[in-house]
Amino acid sequence: MSHVFLYALVGVGLFTLGLYALIVHPHLLRKILAINVMGSGVFLMLVALGRRTPGTLPDPVPHAMAITGIVVAISATALALALMLRVQVETGRAELPEEPLE
């Protein structure tokens, strides 16, 4: 049953990769991609750890949560892309003016 932890760790990896790209890349489209990768990492962890059930059936609650999360993610992505295009029309660049260092 330990492939569960393998996928959970991959989830952690995706989360961190996404976070790195989010901070480092100035282009907004890349930032949006990065947020999506981070989200996938979170969902992967959520669902993978739900497979630690003793029987043959997984825990359905994290599955429902992941589906909710996926729908939220596409909503946020759609809004972010539209906003990015507005920013580009207004400023000529699809980037934020100065990078806030975190």
Binding site: L29, V47, A66, I67
Partner: peptide, 30 residues
């Protein structure tokens, strides 16, 4: 692989398919 077929369907349709279409459309407009 994680026995989550419902999520797999949602991911394939929304995560890959429609998000991809939105991204490509946005890139074209950019």
């Amino acid at each position: 692989r994680l026995d989550a077929p419902d999520v797999a369907l949602a991911e394939a349709a929304i995560g890959a398919g429609l998000t991809g279409a939105l991204l490509l459309a946005a890139l074209a407009r950019l």
